[in-house]
Amino acid sequence: MNGNITDNRKCLTSDEIRDYHLNKLSDEKRRQVEEHIIDCDICSDLFDAYENISVEDVKKITTEITSKIDSKIKHKTSLRTIIYSSAAIIVLFALSVLLNNSGNSGNELFTKYFKPYPDVTLQMRNETNYGLLKKGMQLYNRGKYKEALKVFDKISGQDKNNFAEFYSGVALIAEGKTDSGIKLLKNIADNPKEYFYPEANWYIGLAYLKLNQPEKAMHRFDLIKNNRDFKTKIIEIKGKLNARN
């Protein structure tokens, strides 16, 4: 340390104090040191300290202290880096979990948008199998999908516009049998002439979201993106999927 100990132009440098004790100063310089320490508390104390320690020891111990402080800071800094890094990893992990489980995950989107298709079978009342269809729909409307599926199965493929097949597909998805629901609904969704074509694609899309297959879901949604019943909801889902990515 060659600068002024007290960082004041009038104060003595550590070298001046050291050299005074080593008798290395000229008479004039010695006089300046002696005059200064009369009025300066700090320099006076530093001057006095040399009564208890040698110049060599001061240099040695100051170096020792400096390296101790360095290692203390580096240790704390590296420790802090480890803590911060760990914290950052935990936060990122928590965020990813949160994102996957709140709002934008496929499963969440499915839960948000999936609603069993309303009963529109009244228009079928003049059909031959309307009695069974009505019975199945009564169970479906009460959320008794298993029982409803058994009834629908009896008339599947026989009713006009594939009502039983469509509601069976929706019931299967509602029951958690997603793959089976998709498979059944594809019979309708792959034919644009089908009565429930847009609805079947909508439910297949939702089922793919649940299976965490957003590309397949979007493919189905794209087929019906201009349908006024689904247009807004599809835009919302697209936005949420993009935000997730």
Partner: peptide, 12 residues
């Protein structure tokens, strides 16, 4: 910057 000063004050 002031470790020497601090040390000398403590020694004193």
């Amino acid at each position: 910057r002031y470790s020497e000063m601090t040390f000398l004050v403590c020694v004193k």
